[in-house]
């Protein structure tokens, strides 16, 4: 939190700086801004802010959930950094997952959204088919299914066997590949990102393509010089949100590994570890510290993305 507070994200992050258009911010704008923002402000102070600050306080305490928090200074943070290999393990798992799944989701989602955007027959049907996996979210049914797909005598190995690759490798039961099956699960649910891309593509004025066609620009070139720039705010949104989401990935790992993060901690996502510390080990003070460390990490990643966005994201309200 402190990071974002001291260093608000770059120019492009928030809308263009005041003063570029009109040198003086009008009293009317101030009033209107705060009026429009008032529900959020109320929510921020009444619903989010209190619990957030409470958890920040708890992160400096020894709090067993059922007892009274006792001040512990920076003990929790020191323990995290110096005396907790599982913290680092969970961080590695999370970052691996993030780096694998975020780009893959974007590629799939953008590719299909572009395919579907081009006035194709049966659009409604396809869109529904690709989106349905996202509808079920982190259902228990999916957890069971994933096991059947990726266990030693599971569906994947059966399919591999029928093309001559005989293996009884349990993809989901072996530490080396278990995380991979969760990446696949995440990519399988690319539908949400796809829908956002589709909505974004729909906002690009068709006239731009027409005038480009007149100019003789080819398909690839049109995509590169019109679609991508105009879609960049949406791409940025998806990348940022999926990154934040990957840092906080919890549901699927919790359900698929029955809350353990196994085999052998190979799917121990950061938040799963935090959950175990808080709700299994009753070390809620430490869990809160883990939460705030994650916030700092995510904020740093987000700040990085915002900084990058300043150079590559194009907004329609800039001129």
């Amino acid at each position: 939190m402190t990071i974002t507070m001291e260093r608000p994200p770059g120019r492009s992050a928030a809308p263009p700086p005041p003063g570029r258009r009109r040198p003086l911010r009008s009293r009317r704008d101030n009033l209107a801004g705060y009026l429009f923002l008032s529900p959020w402000l109320l929510g921020f102070f009444l619903i989010i802010g209190g619990p957030m600050v409470a958890s920040l306080y708890l992160s400096f305490t020894d709090y067993s959930v059922l007892g009274t928090p006792e001040w512990a200074g920076t003990d929790n943070y020191e323990r995290m950094l110096t005396d907790d290999p599982r913290f680092w393990a969970s961080l590695t798992v999370t970052l691996t997952y993030l780096l694998a799944s975020v780009p893959l989701v974007q590629v799939f989602a953008l590719f299909l959204a572009s395919l579907l955007n081009r006035g194709i027959g049966g659009l409604t049907f396809y869109r529904a088919v690709f989106y349905v996996p996202s509808l079920i979210g982190g259902s228990v049914a999916i957890a069971i299914l994933w096991r059947f797909l990726f266990e030693g005598d599971g569906l994947l190995n059966n399919a591999l066997g029928s093309v001559g690759v005989d293996t009884s490798h349990s993809w989901i039961g072996t530490p080396d590949t278990a995380l991979g099956t969760l990446v696949v699960l995440n990519v399988w649910q690319f539908g949400a990102a796809m829908i956002i891309y589709l909505a974004g593509l729909r906002q690009i004025p068709a006239e731009l393509y027409e005038s480009a066609s007149v100019d003789g620009a080819g398909r690839a070139r049109r995509y590169w010089s019109i679609t991508l720039p105009l879609l960049s705010p949406v791409i940025f949104f998806n990348v940022l949100m999926n990154t934040v989401g990957a840092f906080q990935a919890f549901n699927t790992a919790y359900i698929v590994s029955n809350g353990t993060g196994g085999p052998a901690d190979s799917t121990l996502f950061y938040t799963l570890y935090l959950y175990q510390r808080g709700f299994v080990d009753f070390e809620m003070g430490y869990a809160s510290a883990l939460g705030w460390a994650l916030l700092v990490l995510v904020a740093a990643a987000a700040a990085g993305l915002f900084a990058l966005s300043r150079r590559v994201v194009f907004y329609g309200d800039e001129r």
């Binding site: 507070m5 608000p8 957030m52 708890l58 934040v244 808080g278 916030l295 904020a299």
Partner: peptide
Amino acid sequence: LWFALMIGTLMLPHHVI
């Protein structure tokens, strides 16, 4: 500032609140 705080609220895992 508000915008940054708004984004910030996305970053804390909900288990701790």
